[in-house]
Design a protein around this nucleic acid. Structure first.
Length: 261
DNA sequence: ATGGCGGTGGAGCACCGA
């Protein structure tokens, strides 16, 4: 079971890249973020033509998340529990029913939170508390669960090429990193760090200032595995080559392979 | 680096991202 996450920075702008990459990697499940379109504008037909079922939680202009799956999707939840007034489309969850068994998958677009000291940073931290509460509830189901997405958190200094550049940024604040650690400490395994201790492992490179050419990247896209999923973790990888494609997203896909039961 | 780039909405340039 191959499960991936990718912040595409506009699914309409990235439709060709997405199709190319789906054919190249043939993931079973893909969590997308930053669709930047409403449900009706999502390019579902092109994706369905490649053999995927689609569950979308879109929003005009900003945010938007989706789950693509070669296997049937059920039990779809749109929106993160804990605040009925939250209108931002940043969370979708579904049960993926593969022949080898079911896996619960969430596509997460955690708030950026910049600049610090504003309502935006408070919203980020509050959203993380809601995510922790929901992630705790999911653990109680004792299922194979994968929480995948753009967490907008640099977990550790080694997850940035130049950590000093990020000390005043919401992605690297002690509060952000602490909430991410508490999320993992509930019992989730962060897949990439479970498979490598290497430096220089990034998932995002800014469009500006030649960040890609200088490998000035950060690691902010993560897949968190419940114990039942972590037991099956075979490998994790980052599709860095996609960042070199013409008019690429500023994020690249991150993949986990789970062995069949 | 004084966001230098890219996407959206909507037809200017403000707003957002990280």
């Amino acid at each position: 079971m191959r499960i991936a996450t990718w912040n595409v920075n506009s699914v309409r702008q990235r439709a060709d890249h997405l199709a190319t990459w789906l054919k190249e990697r043939a993931p079973d499940v893909v969590c997308l973020q930053e669709l930047k379109c409403v449900d009706e504008a999502f390019p579902a037909e092109a994706i369905e033509a490649l053999g995927y079922n689609v569950a979308v939680h879109g929003q005009k202009t900003f945010n938007g998340v989706a789950i693509l799956s070669k296997h049937p999707l059920s039990d779809v939840r749109r929106g993160l529990p804990g605040d009925d007034d939250d209108q931002q489309a940043r969370y979708i969850e579904a049960l993926v029913e593969a022949p080898s068994g079911a896996t619960r998958v969430a596509s997460i677009y955690l708030p950026n939170g910049n600049p610090i000291g504003t309502e935006k940073f408070a919203y980020k931290l509050a959203w993380m508390e809601r995510l922790i509460a929901h992630a705790r509830d999911l653990l109680a189901l004792e299922e194979a669960t994968v929480l995948a997405g753009d967490y907008n958190v640099i977990p550790e200094p080694r997850d940035a090429r130049n950590p000093a550049l990020w000390v005043d940024d919401a992605l690297f604040q002690p509060e952000s990193r602490g909430a991410f650690r508490r999320l993992c400490a509930l019992g989730y395994t962060e897949a990439v760090r479970a498979t490598t201790d290497a430096d220089g492992v990034y998932t995002f490179w800014d469009y500006q200032a030649g960040a890609w050419q200088k490998n000035n990247g950060i690691r902010i896209d993560h897949l968190l595995l419940s114990p039942q999923a972590a037991d099956r973790l075979a490998s994790a990888s980052i599709d860095k080559h996609v960042r070199a494609w013409e008019k690429s997203s500023d994020h690249v896909p991150v993949i986990v392979d789970l062995s069949d039961r």
